[in-house]
């Protein structure tokens, strides 16, 4: 039972990468379907809709980031094995990114679909269309912030 801390820490890292990754995969996936549809009608829009499709992809990257920072501190990719309490703290610190990443990734994807529809109808409104999905991302960024600060705060 010496390694229980590491087990909890790794679970936390896995949760961050796992759920945020799923959220982004779903979001980018549905946005990709809309983007492909828009491109079939107007191939010139490819560059713009690609940008909109990529917007929900950041949650997965934030999840990766949290997972990596955690791994580098719990003795798997550096640092030393944490105590059981520290391990639980790491687990808790990873939860915001994992769960908010999941929810915001999916819903940002839906907002991206709507934004792609907007751009395919009114090409010149790209600047505004980009903002709607970016609004959703705010919450992923806030979760990322709390997760990062928590992990850095664990002594």
């Amino acid at each position: 039972m010496d390694n229980l801390g590491m087990v909890f820490g790794l679970t936390g890292a896995a949760i961050a990468a796992l759920f945020a990754g799923i959220g982004s995969a779903v979001g980018v996936g549905i946005a990709g379907q809309a983007a492909a549809g828009a491109t079939s009608e107007k191939p010139d829009l490819f560059g713009k809709v690609l940008v909109l499709q990529l917007l929900p992809g950041t949650q997965g990257i934030y999840g990766l980031l949290i997972a990596f920072i955690t791994l580098s501190r719990i003795g798997i990719m550096g640092g030393q094995a944490p105590t059981t309490v520290q391990g639980l703290l790491y687990l808790a610190a990873c939860l915001p990114m994992g769960f908010v990443g999941l929810g915001s990734g999916i819903h940002q994807g839906k907002a991206s679909v709507a934004a792609i529809n907007l751009v395919s109808k009114k090409e010149d409104q790209f600047g505004k269309a980009m903002i709607f999905p970016a609004m959703v991302e705010t919450y992923a960024i806030l979760a990322l912030l709390i997760s990062i600060l928590s992990i850095f705060g664990i002594k």
Binding site: I61, Y62, L64, L65, I69, I141, L144, L145, I148
Partner: peptide, 10 residues
């Protein structure tokens, strides 16, 4: 901060 850290850490 968050995006700045993200670039560096990734």
């Amino acid at each position: 901060l968050a995006l700045g850290l993200a670039t560096g850490v990734i």
